[in-house]
């Protein structure tokens, strides 16, 4: 491949090829993932979202066009699935038990 063509590809990261600098494989921002080791409200939020099939809150908002319903203490109360056909309701207190902690993934956007 000629050098000039390679350079032009690198300059258009939205192409979805995954070769773009600062972009993830699907064309979104590059993300770093760590597994939860200890419970926290952020872990609880990730647990609730991932139980329904979303990676992050940004993904949920993008799919449903708005934030989910929340309890007074800030925990997620109700989530809608991707098709908008079914609903999952969550309790006011902690639901992510210690036995589920290692399955919860915490994503953070990596600065390019």
């Amino acid at each position: 491949m000629p050098k000039s063509l390679r350079e032009s590809e690198e300059q258009t990261p939205e192409s979805g090829s995954g070769a773009g600098r600062g972009r993830g494989r699907g064309g979104g921002p590059r993300m770093k993932m760590v597994r939860a080791k200890k419970w926290s409200p952020e872990v609880e939020e990730a647990f609730r979202l991932q139980s329904v099939g979303y990676k992050t809150m940004e993904e949920y908002v993008e799919a449903n066009g708005g934030e989910p319903l929340r309890w007074e203490n800030g925990y997620i109360r109700k989530l809608v699935d991707r098709e908008g056909e079914s609903f999952t309701y969550w309790r006011k207190d902690r639901e992510c038990e210690d036995k589920y902690l290692h399955k919860v993934k915490l994503y953070t956007v990596v600065e390019p």
């Binding site: 647990f47 139980s51 056909e85 079914s86 609903f87 309701y89 992510c96 589920y100």
Partner: peptide, 13 residues
């Protein structure tokens, strides 16, 4: 689900 079984409501409560 791997993160424990849950109830899916087909209609809003």
């Amino acid at each position: 689900r791997a993160l424990g079984n849950r109830i899916r409501w087909m209609v809003e409560i």
